[in-house]
């Protein structure tokens, strides 16, 4: 087994516009090592949703990504306001996004459910006032 690829991104909590750069770079990296397209799409959606949540709800943070031969692990860590009721937050359609954010097309309450749906392993930890950490693992299935 060779070494894994470790990537680290600062996700700026103020910046809506550049949001998505980390997932874009991860996508490019996965393409460079020949990961099948279907898997790339799953990674891309899951990571993008996580990045957006860090910006909109979490006030920014750090994304740490590790790519192994057979899987990718994504850890998204912010030191924002945290989530009081994780079970509720995980429900489809639940959102605390403001009207303004909804105007921008976010706030459907589908981010966390989709992140869970597209990853093979999903964990979320959060403490109110301290921050949230989401960990996702996606296995590389070869295209049928």
């Amino acid at each position: 087994m060779g070494d894994s690829i470790k990537l680290r991104y600062d996700v700026n909590g103020e910046d809506f516009v550049t949001c998505g750069q980390a997932s874009e770079d991860v996508k490019r990296t996965l393409k460079g090592i020949g990961i099948p397209s279907a898997t790339i799409r799953r990674v891309s959606i899951a990571m993008y949703e996580g990045e957006i949540n860090m910006v909109i709800h979490g006030g920014g943070g750090v994304a740490e990504v590790e790519i192994f031969e057979d899987r990718i692990t994504i850890v998204l860590k912010d030191t924002g306001k945290g989530i009081a009721d994780i079970e509720k937050a995980m429900q489809e359609g639940y959102s605390t996004a403001t009207e303004d954010i909804r105007e921008l097309g976010f706030g459907a309450g589908m981010g966390l459910p989709n992140m869970k749906k597209y990853s093979d392993e999903f964990a979320i930890e959060s403490k109110v006032g301290q921050g949230t950490t989401v960990t996702m693992t996606i296995n590389f299935q070869e295209d049928a």
Partner: peptide, 24 residues
Amino acid sequence: ESKESAFLLSANRQEAMRKTILVK
């Protein structure tokens, strides 16, 4: 059909990963 192989660092995954680490 996909033409993404134009962007592969190597057709061998281990070799491609090794190269990715070097690129970084």
